[in-house]
Amino acid sequence: MTNFVIRRIGLAAIQLVIVATIVFLLIRLIPGDAARAVLGENATDDQVAAMRSTMGLDEAFPIQFFNYWKNLLTGDLGVSLISGRPVAADLIVRFGNSLEIIVLAILVSIVVGVVLGRIAAIRNDRALDHIITGGSVLGISLPVFVTGTLLLLVFSVWLPILPPQRYVGFFSDPLGHLQLIILPVLALAATSTAVIMRMTRSAMLETLSADFVRTVRAKGVIERKVITYHALRNALVPVVSITSVELATLIGSTVLIETIFGWPGMSSMLMQAVTDRDYPVIQAVVLSASVFVIIVNLVADLVIRLLDPRTESF
């Protein structure tokens, strides 16, 4: 186990180094001159030269690379080209806000998805199963921004239960904050719930027909215990692995959801940076989202290994 943990963490570290290197190369791939791209066509040569120096593009390539790593390792993600503020300070707040809706959405998806998946597996091929599976096909076919906009139409315009309002922090107005968070979390959770439900159902069906479950039943264990302690527990491995995939998808979906609901997370920062060609901010967002995905995958692999010591992944 220790050996596995060390090797798996080592792999994640290598992934981090490569991902960070690709993010470094990203703005150096801009066709033409990155500094001119930021300033626009009308900038004078002096302005472009000054911008090159601000962006650190006037140094030799290896020195640029060295400086990038030196800054990264000291937690310095550079300075916004537009506001002049350090990117890291803003990003931490924004990333926290994004994380809030991502974590809530995945918790909702896991609870609802596993419960529905369990019901559908037990009621295999009966009416309830068909209703749940049918609903899940619809669920995975809902593009997240469509769910978001339609929820907004229904709950803010047609039935003004959750009217659009300005963002308020949890600590200044807990109730107002909760009202704000309901729709984005629902929109994000719709698809993940369907995916997790499908995985739970098929994994449970597989374990329910396994030899060891037959043995457990033959021993006279009551059905409820068979399902909860034996079948569901063994079905969890693929569920954990699909949950990590969903978490990685959610961080992309939040960009759309935050734009729709005006949630002050990472995405408005990213979209503003895209409009302004604020490359340090774009780099920082891509890097932190990728770090998030790498860590999620690492944790998922470790959890799977704990649940099922036989797995020899990677």
Binding site: I22, T249, L256, A273, V274, A289, S290
Partner: peptide, 17 residues
């Protein structure tokens, strides 16, 4: 490595660039 980037975010960044 390509799979460890979140697809939508990388797509946004790439299209922006």
């Amino acid at each position: 490595i390509l799979l460890s980037f979140p697809a939508v975010i990388l797509a946004i960044a790439a299209v922006a660039i």
